[in-house]
């Protein structure tokens, strides 16, 4: 579960998040959408403190991560993140990308970490690439590896920051398929995305951000068929 209370974030004088309050329930899949500059990526990055909030509180499970006493490294082990540009470790093989953090951070034995990594690679359909370096993979394959890498830490929550925005169109589907099957496992997911079709089909809820504010919080069917705010209506007109 993720709970956010009056979250604010400023970069210098620019206020990017102007007080956002919401709760993402256990097992819920939430799509975060909005025009560029609306603060959706910053919002997501505040959920594992890659950005430090200026004000407000964030809970992951029953831990308030914005409390200075919380060990943020421990919290991050529980919050997987997938980036727009993958950020695989280029000097490690695919398998090493998956086993490094479980072994180093969680102290998992090599054999166990590798067995788990191979299982995850099979799930994302890339077991045969285990010993390749990331530079040999296509964008879609890289992103599937990145998802598997995050899952290797057995997180309770997964954050996706525009996971398909940097992909060639023909590779978007393979990544969305992996995310869809992940959603079916009951994983709690927060996804910043421009894939409206995916948000409509897979998400339990849609958060629409604009100008640093949470403008709409609705089920996909409500949001896509009858958006309440004018901004959301305009946005959807452009997108669909």
């Amino acid at each position: 579960m993720i709970k956010v209370e009056n979250l604010r974030k400023s970069f210098g004088k620019l206020e990017v998040l102007k007080g956002i309050t919401t709760t993402i329930k256990q097992g819920e899949v939430v799509a975060i959408i909005g025009p560029s500059g609306s603060g959706k990526s910053t919002f997501l990055r505040c959920l594992n403190l890659l950005e430090e909030p200026t004000d407000g509180k964030v809970w992951i499970g029953d831990q308030e991560i914005t409390n200075r006493k919380t060990n943020i490294m421990k919290v991050r082990q529980n919050v997987g993140m997938v980036f727009q540009h993958f950020h695989l470790f280029p000097h490690m093989t695919v398998l090493e990308n998956l086993t490094y953090a479980p072994m180093k951070v969680k102290g998992m034995a090599k054999a166990e970490a590798e067995a788990k990594a191979m299982e995850l690679l099979r799930k994302v359909g890339l077991a045969q690439k285990a010993n390749e370096y990331p530079s040999r993979l296509s964008g879609g394959q890289k992103q599937r590896v990145a998802i598997a890498r995050a899952l290797a830490m057995s997180p309770e929550v997964m954050l996706f920051d525009e996971p398909t925005s940097a992909l060639d169109p023909e590779m978007v589907k393979e990544v969305l398929e992996v995310m869809k099957s992940l959603a079916h496992t009951g994983m709690t997911m927060a996804i910043v995305t421009h894939e409206m079709g995916f948000a409509r089909e897979v998400a339990d809820r849609v958060l629409f951000l604009d100008g640093g504010l949470l403008v709409e919080d609705a089920s996909p069917s409500e949001f896509f068929s009858a958006p309440k705010s004018k901004r959301a209506q305009e946005f959807l007109e452009k997108m669909l």
Partner: peptide, 24 residues
């Protein structure tokens, strides 16, 4: 992004520098 990816995985500063940033 390399640093962010390491941070997001909960990798502490020292191993992050030694195993991820410095080799690159």
């Amino acid at each position: 992004g390399q640093r962010e990816a390491a941070m997001a995985l909960g990798i502490p500063y020292k191993p992050m520098m030694r195993d991820i940033i410095l080799p690159q």
